[in-house]
Amino acid sequence: MTQISLITGNAGKAREYASLLGIAVTPVREDLAEIQSLDVTEVVHRKAAEAYRLLGSPVLVDDTGLALDAWNGFPGALIRWVLKARGVDGVLTMVGDDPARAATVTTAIGYVDAHGDVQVFTGSLHGTIAPEPRGDNGFGYDSIFIPSSGGGRTYAEMAPEEKNEISHRRLAVNALRKGLDLAPTNA
């Protein structure tokens, strides 16, 4: 495989995937129906099948979720909608003063081959929710998620390269590379 399409409206995300995978990644903007589920793997499996139906060629899709232990995994894959409606302050309100601030971020990547067969690869990273936003980098919940391997810093307090070395997306890409038997890159 030397190139693939990625369903996204974000050219930067396509460049990031190209760097991580070592192949050409073309961003394709498509509005895909998204099932409502806390489980990113379910969401991605459906989105990948629909993307293949629309494009008729190999394609990647992804989705990311933030699961709060105190809320039994909510919002999960619905985090985008929580952030849109209430922002990170809404997530902080959900967690409140609960000392159980554990959270897990998971990225699922759906790959559909030339025959329409869907494979889903995931990467998860455990951490905690900060009591208040910290840092200026990143987006979404990066200012409140403290990965367990991050030395007590939020994603937003890390340089992008540092975050990318330990992130849930990196772990999902590593699983994808292994599952598709792609040679490693230096990224």
Results as ranks from 00 to 15, higher is better:
Q3C: 14
A70K: 10
L171W: 00
N10F: 06
I146V: 15
A67D: 12
V28H: 03
T185M: 05
H168Y: 14
G123H: 05
L125Q: 15
G12T: 07
I7D: 13
D89P: 12
L171D: 10
V173M: 11
L32S: 15
A24Q: 13
V91T: 01
T122P: 00
V40S: 09
N137Q: 13
L21C: 03
L55Y: 07
G12V: 03
V61D: 05
E162D: 13
T154I: 08
S37V: 02
T64I: 15
Y155A: 01
G127Y: 01
G127I: 14
G140M: 03
G123L: 09
E42I: 02
G151E: 09
H115R: 13
L6S: 01
L180V: 10
T26D: 12
A100E: 12
S148E: 09
I4E: 00
L83I: 05
P75K: 05
A51W: 02
V28N: 11
A51Y: 06
G116R: 04
N164G: 08
R134V: 07
H168A: 13
T107Q: 01
L68G: 02
S19R: 15
S57P: 06
A175S: 13
L55R: 01
L78R: 05
E165W: 14
A114H: 14
M158C: 04
E30K: 12
G87W: 03
L32A: 04
E161D: 05
G73N: 07
S5E: 14
A70F: 05
D181M: 14
P99H: 05
S149H: 04
E50P: 01
P131F: 14
G56E: 12
E42P: 09
Y111P: 11
I166Q: 00
P160T: 06
A67K: 09
D113S: 11
V28D: 12
A85P: 05
L60P: 06
P147N: 05
G12S: 10
A100F: 01
A130V: 10
Q3M: 13
A156M: 02
A103N: 04
L38H: 08
T128R: 03
Q3E: 15
G140F: 00
V95H: 01
R134E: 09
R134A: 08
G152Y: 07
H126D: 15
F139L: 13
D97R: 11
